[in-house]
Amino acid sequence: MAKRIDIKDVDIYYGKFHAVEGVTVSVPPKNVTAFIGPSGCGKSTVLRTLNRMHEVIPGARVEGQVLLDGEDIYGTNVDPVQVRRTIGMVFQQPNPFPTMSIRDNVVAGLKLAGTRDKKKLDEVAERALRGANLWTEVKDRLNKPGSGLSGGQQQRLCIARAIAVQPDVLLMDEPCSALDPISTLAIEDLIGQLKQDYTIVIVTHNMQQAARVSDQTAFFNLAGVGQPGRLIECNDTEKIFSNPEEKATEDYISGRFG
């Protein structure tokens, strides 16, 4: 199921502001790619263009191609809804639907798409919760609201919700930044397992996290104040952290940056 993503020469604009310039990255299937870089360098912006979530922001616009197994997600007759169904996303803040129970949260994607078969929904819920390492913690209170869980549990609930629709790719936008270290560890664990089945792209401001979870790392940086962000270097994580090709990358990694 996992698919590869090829980002080809992508430019992103917010109205007239040129936010990101000329990004080209390939994300192989069943692989974790981390986007790192200083605040405001456009790494989250690039992530959002991978499932067209940037279109929620008025005035945002993309030039270039994003290919999912060779197919352009910005093609003329491609529906953004279909793209998002295929490429799931987990956000910075855990955001379970407050009106829904834990179980309904997990199967929200299927239910909203019209699946009514209760038995099947129960199956999917269990499978997704097991997949998110949350099943044993919540199996006795599936009908309680999701907002009653701890922050770390809520985030895993959101991951379960994302994988319940069986996407091909999972995007994670700083999924641990609102969590404590122990919950963070649980999520990182989970990412390691999920990559057996999914292509994962994760944005993180935590370099140790990128080093721990990813196979390949892309470093983004700003050319200067008011300048668009760009991709500086993308390479195997090991190489980026031990022997980067660019000086800017090395400065950032070693903390000699800004």
Partner: peptide
Amino acid sequence: DQLREASYALGVPKWKTIVRVVLPT
């Protein structure tokens, strides 16, 4: 807005997001 985004990210169309996620909340 996070709830709306979560719903969009699941591939739920806007009108359904409003009817099934935003309004119940």
